[in-house]
Design a protein around this nucleic acid. Structure first.
Lengths: 261, 261
DNA sequence: CGCCCGATTGAGAGGGTTCAAAGCGAGTGG
DNA sequence: CCACTCGCTTTGAACCCTCTCAATCGGGCG
């Protein structure tokens, strides 16, 4: 089995828990909150790429947290066509709402080998009860998801294919950066890019063929430098300008993720 | 000023509060919950069509509940293009999360004359604290919004313009029906349809011109019968079949009985 | 009656899709 | 160590859905 996609550039940085690190953006956490949130996801397992973590129409599964690797939520139409509604990057959670809805309206699938944790509902509720900080942080997480969905709607609906791809790349970079998974160097910012061009097409509402061509043109403009595994953005500001990306909608605290103090 | 858009067919039905009525679909409410929720939105005001209720980038306003009329959330791009991310129909709420985020990432605008209530944040928090039923209901509301956004992403991204419009009509009918605003008769189901074709285009990610043409073809197939004010769906099942609409994602209880967990 | 906004229609251009085939890299088995 | 296979990438060519630009129509309102 291929190794879990994480940090391919030299030694792994000391990100003990991307879940907690991400939530730092959402609310001021006390040490006790951090410990509790970290404890929440202690039982992680590893799944293969393309593993289906939740099936559309199933009973709502437990809250799921991706600790390493990329996953996605997607909906499938009768024609077999598929739309990825959101990417789940390290630190992201889904189904925060165990118990409220009867059934999921979307599937959850691993795009790469993933380390995921499932959270016991009772334990989650207890934490929400006990810790206002953790509670606010999880609320924030849910609102961020909402906000990203809205931006995706604008992006896929109102921008040209080329620009759409650029915007997606900007978003992924900002989100990975928030959990310390972007390497900054003199030649630009570098991060993992495990998406298949079919995946890419399913995220951005286009055809795999067209995704391919548009990535090619992006590559030719020099705005991105990618191989099958990694993405390098020589000039993030320029790429952002090209696609009108403004990170506000991610509601991340400005700058990089605050480190545990 | 034109009258508030509500129920144009004869006498107004006894829907005291569409907000409460909608939330009945989300959680089993005790009488006390109903009274409390109803009390929450007691201070309603009326705004004109096109009134901007919240500006993108503003401080997050109070929780807003639409009691009558149609509103929307929308995002505007630099080019002036605009995308409506969700419609707010009678009973719908937005900004449930006062206080969690610093700024909104989208605007809220009245599409018709509207009756809206703003909720005092302190009062909202107190209610959430006090009433598990109301709390669950508002959670549900937020999850329903999420689910509708995902479906919109699929709809706008993966279906053809004609079908997209049909799907939107099905969704609106289901949502209006949930708050008792659809009139069923021998000639089909009838409900208000105040959307401009520009609005329609901004919801479905297409051009006003194209929205016009595609509505025309829908009309010609006989699947819908509309004038400038109202929409009639002669055969809801047929329209649903045409566009692959399944109401599951709205998470409405089939009848009026709330789902028991 | 004239104005204005929205609906409607026409014609032409182009972005994106579809269908199809070839290239390429990695893992597998002989 | 190499042929084989499989999945993903890349490229070509034709088609068509949707957009753009414009003009006309129509109804409500002052």
């Amino acid at each position: 089995m291929a190794p879990v996609v994480g940090w391919p550039f030299g030694s792994r940085p000391a990100v003990s828990n991307p879940f907690v690190r991400r939530l730092e953006h959402g609310a001021a956490l006390a040490d006790a909150d951090r410990r509790a949130l970290s404890h929440l996801v202690r039982n992680a397992r590893t799944v293969r790429a393309r593993h289906v973590l939740a099936v559309e129409g199933d009973r709502v599964p437990r809250m799921l947290v991706v600790l390493a690797g990329w996953a996605c939520r997607c909906k499938t139409l009768v024609g077999g066509r598929c739309q990825i509604t959101d990417l789940l990057l390290p630190g992201d959670a889904c189904h925060l709402h165990t118990g409220t809805l009867a059934r999921t309206d979307h599937a959850v699938e691993a795009l790469t080998p993933c380390t995921v944790a499932e959270v016991d509902p009772a334990e989650l509720l207890a934490l929400l009860d006990r810790s206002p900080g953790a509670s606010r942080a999880l609320w924030w997480s849910s609102l961020q998801t909402d906000s990203m969905l809205r931006e995706a709607l604008v992006n896929n609906g109102r921008r040209r294919a080329e620009v759409r791809l650029a915007h997606l790349i900007c978003e992924v970079q900002a989100r990975l950066s928030a959990v310390g998974l972007v390497e900054e160097s003199a030649t630009g910012d570098r991060f993992v890019w495990p998406l298949t061009q079919t995946d890419l097409a399913e995220v951005t509402s286009m055809t795999p063929v067209h995704a391919n061509r548009m990535m090619k043109t992006l590559r030719e403009t020099g705005l991105i430098v990618d191989d099958r595994r990694t993405m390098r953005v020589p000039d993030a500001a320029q790429l952002a300008a090209f696609c009108g990306f403004r990170s506000d909608y991610l509601h991340l605290t400005s700058g990089s993720a605050p480190l545990a103090a």
